[in-house]
């Protein structure tokens, strides 16, 4: 008889937009990364704007559209405007039935995201179990913001645990601690972002302040020995001495993080922003000397610099 502890939890589903197998830069070994859809932040440099909306959605790549209008008649919601502005798309009306995506010959319309069950996700990730075992890898939950779907994440992590699969999470740190703290007990590694140390600047650049995030980082790191801080390094935003020093101070005095990984910003291209109906903004990648200088500052606080290249 299975004990009550082992009883399967209520089937639970969530929204994801990709499972990437052979992910080798998000933690130890060969991993599968599950991208959960939905994020409460709006970082201006975000490489995955299609992860913002917590529901499946249709992306429209205007530059691929030839104006053939095949999509217009199949849309039952009148979400696509024909004529002059062929292909113009009103997202509010779209029910995400994806019929237009099926007929579009150029791939200008693409549905992103799907509602899936824990079991659906497991079916994919367990396929690479032998690769995790040989490499010391496992599964990484990323996003979007994975903690924005706490029950789904909890059950995914618990299910991996039962299979002996290593688990890690990549988070913005923006969540209600009380609601999710138990999940950290199911995770083998935590990657959490610090985007900026100044609350106001953080709000400007991501849409939310950083107080709660920094508090959460302190709590996680005291609880979890394998917490790594990730810093997207962007010339115009955070790659300056004052900010990095403030970060070093904070990490040294208030946390017990295992290390810091700098991820130099890379241009993502405008197209995806326009495809979700948003405005993109271009930033600059700091040069090698700058990155090295930032690393030195952090190292001087006695904090390890790590990377997963």
């Amino acid at each position: 008889m299975p004990s009550s502890k082992e009883r399967p939890m209520k089937p639970c589903s969530g929204t994801i937009f990709q499972i990437q197998r052979w992910s080798i830069h998000d933690g130890e070994g060969v991993r599968s990364t599950v991208f959960l859809k939905g994020c409460p932040l709006r970082c201006k440099w975000c490489a995955n704007p299609e992860s913002w909306n917590g529901n499946p959605e249709v992306l429209f790549f205007q530059e691929k559209c030839t104006g053939c209008n095949r999509c217009v008649p199949v849309c039952g919601e009148g979400a696509i405007d024909p004529g002059e502005t062929a292909g113009r798309f009103s997202r509010e009306r779209c029910s995400c039935c994806a019929r237009c995506c099926e007929v579009c010959p150029t791939g200008a319309r693409k549905r992103i995201g799907a509602k899936v069950t824990v079991e659906d996700v497991l079916q994919v990730i367990r396929r690479d179990a032998v690769f995790y075992r040989e490499s010391g890898g496992g599964v990484t939950f990323s996003g979007g913001e994975p903690f924005a779907q706490p029950e789904f994440l909890r059950q995914l992590a618990a299910a991996c645990r039962r299979l002996g699969i290593d688990t890690a999470v990549e988070t913005s740190g923006y969540f209600d601690w009380e609601q999710v703290k138990d999940i950290f007990g199911l995770l083998d590694g935590v990657f959490v972002d610090i985007k900026h140390m100044d609350d106001e600047r953080h709000r400007q650049m991501t849409g939310v302040g950083n107080r709660g995030i920094l508090e959460n980082i302190a709590r996680i790191s005291l609880l979890h020995p394998n917490t790594i801080v990730r810093v997207p390094l962007i010339e115009e935003v955070n790659a300056h001495e004052q900010n990095i020093r403030a970060m070093g101070e904070f990490l040294k005095n208030h946390t017990r993080v295992k290390g810091v990984e700098f991820l130099p910003y890379h241009d993502f291209g405008e197209a995806k922003y326009r495809a979700v109906g948003a405005q993109g903004q271009a930033f600059t990648t700091p040069d090698g000397a700058k990155i090295a200088a930032m690393k030195e500052i952090i190292a001087a606080y006695g904090i390890d610099i790590v990377d997963f290249k």
Binding site: I24, G29, V130, G137
Partner: peptide
Amino acid sequence: ELLQSERSLKNLAALIRAYFAL
């Protein structure tokens, strides 16, 4: 680019071992 670090070499080794385990 995928094989520059020592870490990635270990991943390649693991990939081979896993493939053979199959």
